[in-house]
């Protein structure tokens, strides 16, 4: 197994990880290693073809991809060594990490580690939902990746569970592509998401929202044929036929690689969490800002 030595190991090359590289470099570190499990840096930004990024940091209305590109260019000029297609499997107390990737298995010994691994989406399987488990059900993030990066179609006659920003943006993407979004299901009495998205998605595209409702059942053998929707006020249930179900029911910081490090009362003094793996940010500019703050604490 290869062994690499570095001053700083940064895990994840999304908005947070890329800005963390710049912060560390500014602080004067010269040996910086950035590990990213995907083919290129960018993170979730790369699947965002819509605008609404960078108003804070660049004072421009960029797409996610454009925002990522600006940082990728800065990254190219930096001294950081970037390992793409390499996943950090595990961090250890003795300041080493185990990495797996196209080059095989690598051990990294480091002084400090910044975890910028983003978040994963909650799934409908974790909710008390009855019925069958057919195909045609996925999270909005997966759908967005399939549509915008792989350029694939996911299906039609869509119901979306959850009205947060991600759900609304994916709904708009789908409608623009000529797909039918039959309903968005929301348990609260108002839709979620930023005002901006409510205006530009829900209102602008007249997306039907069913407030104070939940999905309690899934129907269909083979591909999904419909969902059972419960109205929280009346407790009445209705069958809503659909052929695709997307979910946008929240994000959970992804910190698996840290394992036991997180068990103590406080984090080790050489370990930092930043971006969506610290807490879930609505706006990328605040991710970038948080990462730049690392300069003063590193």
């Amino acid at each position: 197994m290869n062994t690499l030595y570095t001053d700083i190991l940064i895990i994840g090359a999304g908005a947070a990880g890329m800005a963390a590289v710049l912060a560390a470099e500014k602080k004067g570190y010269q040996k910086i290693l950035l590990a990213e499990r995907k083919e290129t840096p960018g993170g979730v930004l790369l699947q965002c073809t819509h605008r609404g990024f960078g108003l804070g940091y660049f004072r421009e209305d960029l797409t996610g991809i454009e925002y990522a590109d600006r940082f990728r260019r800065m990254l190219e000029k930096s001294c950081a060594k970037i390992l793409n297609r390499t996943m950090v499997l595990q961090l250890y107390q003795d300041r080493t990490a185990l990495l797996a990737g196209k080059d095989g298995l690598t051990r990294v010994c480091f002084e400090k580690c910044i975890m910028a691994t983003g978040c994963r989406e909650r799934t409908i399987q974790s909710l008390p939902v009855g019925g069958t488990r057919p195909s045609g059900i996925m999270t909005c993030g997966t759908a967005q990746k399939l549509m915008n990066i792989d350029k694939l179609e996911i299906g039609d006659e869509i119901v979306i569970l959850g009205t947060g920003d991600v759900g609304q943006i994916v709904a708009r993407d789908l409608i623009k592509k000529g797909r039918k979004v039959l309903a968005m299901i929301e348990q609260n009495d108002v839709p979620g998401g930023l005002k901006r998205n409510q205006e530009q998605c829900l209102k602008a595209f007249s997306i039907p929202v069913m407030l104070k409702t939940q999905i309690t059942g899934i129907c269909g053998s083979g591909r999904i044929e419909g969902v059972i929707v419960r109205h929280l006020d009346t407790e009445a249930e209705e069958f809503l036929p659909c052929r695709t179900l997307l979910t946008a029911i929240g994000m959970i910081p992804e910190r698996e690689a840290a394992g036991k490090l997180l068990e103590g009362a406080s984090l080790p003094d050489w370990f930092y969490l930043v971006g969506n793996c610290d807490y879930v940010h609505d706006i990328v500019d605040s991710v970038t800002a948080d990462a730049f703050k690392l300069e003063s604490v590193l």
């Binding site: 019925g131 129907c219 044929e225 419909g226 059972i228 069958f239 036929p241």
Partner: peptide
């Protein structure tokens, strides 16, 4: 509910 509406072969 689902089967009653006749549109679905595999209801809860």
């Amino acid at each position: 509910t689902a089967a009653a509406s006749g549109c679905c072969t595999a209801a809860p």
